[in-house]
Every structure is written in structure tokens, then in C-alpha cells.
């Protein structure tokens, strides 16, 4: 009888995933019981949520891995040390040194190494069974890291060139004179100082958000088509699961790529801020 009742309600019974699926209630609470507060016109949960725990977990995982890998400092590295050195060297040499240059890069290595693996691990939480939530699909987390990058590259630039010298470096293109400057200087200021942190944050957040949304859609949609419809549509449910797997593989790539792009752009901004006058 219940089967008949279910077939009687077709697509109206399906709730499509939305931004609400990312607004998890605090641990130990359900949607109804969680305490809330108002912020910027939004009602927000008050309490420890899953992505917050994931942040702490990622710190523990990253530090444990690198600590164990770097502990022995063997001349001939073992497997773990080799993997650790390769991962560390990838950011140290492939990102920091190649972008910032061998003169200045070393003081940014701790920041960039931590940034890369912090984003990478938190992104991959979106695929790890049992966790399955990319931390940076919460916009605030991405904003925080982008804001920090913004502070870092502007700060080192101002320390090196002075505030005026730095602003001139960032906003006045070389070889341009006269009236064109009136047009270009605001444009450069807008693009180099204002837009950079926004794009940095949104690129990471939107990729994680959209990717996870896509996965939820294929998972929930597949389940609904398979279990709650009749006729040929369950076949579409199977196809939906196949798509889920395909998108998961794509997400693996996107997650690593977003971590890489975030750190690459951060080191490029630092390099640009440290650049000598051209």
C-alpha cells in the first residue's frame, strides 16, 4: 500500500539539494533544536559544526604526517620521509621558490606549505567516506584564508617599498605616461588590491560548493529515481549514480587543483609585491 502511495506522488516528493544542505546544524542538535543568532540578515546556528571539527582534524592530520615524516632526518630517507619530503619539496621548490625567487622565498615557506596542505586536506574531506563535506564550501572559511593572503602580500610589499612605493608599484604600470594614467591607476588599484582577495576566496569556495552540490544532487536524485519511481526512470537513477562516480573523479582533480591555484596565486601576489621597480 505504501508502494502505491509513493508511486502516486511523482516528482513533487523530491526535495532538490540547496544551500541549506551546507548549513549543518551544530553537533548534538537537529535543525529544530539548535540555538541561532542573526548575522548580516541571516539566521545562523550557534554551536560546534562538522566543518569546524574538520578544520581541527586537518591540522592534526597534517602536522602528524609531516612530524612523523620529518622526525628522523635520515640521510637516506625511508618511505614515509620520502613522501613527506616530496610533498614538502613540491610546495617549497615548485611553488614558493619558482614563483618568489630563491632570494626571498624561504620566509614564506612555512605559510605556503601550511596553506597548501590545509586547503588540500580540507577539500579532500569532501570525498572521504564518513566525512564527505568539503570544509571550504563554507564561504567564511575561504574568506578567512583569502583575507590572510591579502594581508600577507600587501604587508610584505609595504614593508619592502613603503606604503607609497608599494601603491605606486601596484597601481602605476611602467612605461605609461600622461592622461592614460588617470584611467589606468584606478583600474590597477581595483584589480590588484581590491579584486584579488575576492576572486581568491570565491574561486575556492564556489568550486567546493558547486562540486559538492553536484554530488549531492546525483546521489539524492539517483536514490529518489531508483527507489521512489516506477517504469523506466529507475534506469535513470542508475545513470545518476554513474554520473556521481564520474563527478567524484572530477572532484578529486578539482580539489587538488584549487589548493594548487590558491597557493600559486598567493605566491605570485607575494612575488609581485616584492618585485623591484620595473
Amino acid at each position: 500500500m505504501s508502494a502505491i502511495a509513493m508511486t502516486a506522488i511523482p516528482t513533487e516528493g523530491f526535495t532538490p539539494p540547496g544551500p541549506g544542505d551546507f548549513n549543518l546544524p551544530p553537533i548534538g542538535h537537529s535543525e529544530g533544536t539548535a540555538p541561532t543568532f542573526e548575522f548580516l540578515g541571516q539566521t545562523m546556528y550557534w554551536g560546534v559544526t562538522k566543518p569546524m571539527v574538520q578544520l581541527a582534524l586537518s591540522v592534526v592530520l597534517i602536522f602528524t604526517f609531516f612530524y612523523l615524516a620529518s622526525r628522523h632526518r635520515a640521510m637516506v630517507p625511508g618511505k614515509l620521509q620520502y613522501v613527506g619530503e616530496t610533498a614538502y619539496g613540491f610546495v617549497r621548490n615548485g611553488l614558493a621558490r619558482d614563483t618568489i625567487g630563491s632570494h626571498d622565498f624561504m620566509r614564506f615557506v612555512p605559510y605556503l606549505v601550511a596553506l597548501f596542505f590545509f586547503i588540500l586536506v580540507n577539500n579532500y574531506f569532501g570525498l572521504i567516506p564518513g566525512i564527505q563535506f568539503p570544509t571550504f564550501s563554507r564561504a567564511g572559511m575561504a574568506y578567512a584564508l583569502a583575507a590572510l593572503s591579502w594581508v600577507v602580500y600587501n604587508y610584505v610589499g609595504m614593508r619592502k617599498h613603503g606604503v607609497g612605493g608599494y601603491l605606486k608599484l601596484q597601481t602605476v604600470p611602467s612605461g605609461v605616461r600622461g592622461v592614460v594614467l588617470l584611467l589606468l591607476v584606478p583600474l590597477e588599484f581595483f584589480s590588484n588590491i581590491l579584486v584579488r582577495p575576492v576572486t581568491l576566496a570565491l574561486r575556492l569556495f564556489a568550486n567546493m560548493f558547486a562540486g559538492h552540490m553536484l554530488l549531492i544532487l546525483f546521489a539524492l536524485g539517483g536514490e529518489y529515481l531508483l527507489l521512489h519511481t516506477t517504469g523506466l526512470t529507475p534506469v535513470a537513477g542508475v545513470l545518476s549514480f554513474v554520473m556521481f562516480m564520474g563527478v567524484s573523479v572530477l572532484e578529486m582533480l578539482v580539489m587538488a587543483l584549487q589548493a594548487y591555484v590558491f597557493v600559486l596565486l598567493t605566491s605570485m601576489y607575494i612575488a609581485g609585491a616584492l618585485a623591484d621597480e620595473h
Binding site: P19, F22, F39, L40, Q42, M52, R138, A139, G140, F205
Partner: peptide, 10 residues
């Protein structure tokens, strides 16, 4: 819900 508005605690 606007996902672009950040959670301050986060």
C-alpha cells in the same frame, strides 16, 4: 539562505 554570507565563528 545566502551561502556567500560567512558564518563569523567559522
Amino acid at each position: 539562505l545566502n551561502p556567500l554570507i560567512p558564518h563569523p565563528a567559522e
